[in-house]
Design a protein around this nucleic acid. Structure first.
Lengths: 138, 138
DNA sequence: TTCCTTATTTGTAATTATTACTAATAAGGA
DNA sequence: TCCTTATTAGTAATAATTACAAATAAGGAA
């Protein structure tokens, strides 16, 4: 299936790069709207999907809340704050040779993996220490 | 907050154990219905949440589709099939000392992590090799 | 350049999964 | 037995995404 270079796809890609964070489809949609006021939300979803598949952007696997998209395509891990539910990049080297630890004898074709840490972010920790738990909300 | 031992909570727990698989709240609800025909879906959701928090069951972090619940509470990893979207247990030893690899200087309190592999399951692979892609659907 | 195929877009409706809310119920201690 | 309040049931609302169909437009062919 040939791929066409549409203005919408370009705008979605540059919005993800401009936001330079873990952005949801909704946020990216809002961002693109500024330049292209009648883009459809469906188009944004569709292009995020395609761009991730093409390797132009990175989809962050989120267990709760909306899927997040990331301009950094270099492999890295994430941590989710249990209090505010935000996702952060993890400061950690990529584990080399993880696939060698797999004993699988069932015959899976393994293509990749993600590691998601969970914990409490510095901001929420500080808020909790003040004994007035006011976690930072997204 | 004191915890009460309700029949509904017992039934949800035993349903998760009986199903002995990665079951969704919906599936667990259906299972409990057989014994307790007027349990509310809200109750099932609420108890799955509580039981996971209590460590009686395990919540599998899923990026797509419904949350899944697992009777196995021993730490283990999962793999998601990109074709049929099902989750499987990964045959692999738990990585020791993963937290030592973390360089974090921002001050996260890290409580745990999950690894989710992605790939193609044996059933889908076989279906694709027959040149008639009929992936097993959940 | 014009035409043609079909990938893509739009906009709306539907769906899926979960949570919010409230009144009724019942667990378990006093 | 009574009382407090955790829990339940049932319904409505929400959030995130997908399905669908008709209109549009990218880019290769003529």
């Amino acid at each position: 299936m040939q791929r066409r270079n549409t203005i919408q796809r370009q705008l979605v890609l540059s919005a993800v790069r401009r936001l330079a964070c873990h952005a949801s489809a909704e946020q990216i949609y809002e961002e693109v709207l500024k330049e292209h006021p009648n883009i459809s939300k469906t188009t944004v979803y569709m292009n995020l999907e395609l761009l991730a598949e093409m390797g132009e952007i990175n989809r962050v696997e989120t267990a709760t809340g909306p899927a997040l998209f990331d301009h950094i395509t270099k492999k890295h891990y994430h941590i989710r704050c249990k209090v505010c539910s935000r996702y952060f990049d993890m400061d950690m080297d990529v584990i080399e040779g993880l696939e060698k630890k797999i004993n699988d004898r069932q015959g899976f074709d393994i293509e990749g993996y993600d590691i998601i840490f969970s914990g409490i972010c510095p901001a929420c920790k500080a808020a909790m220490n003040k004994k007035s738990p006011k976690p930072h909300k997204p």
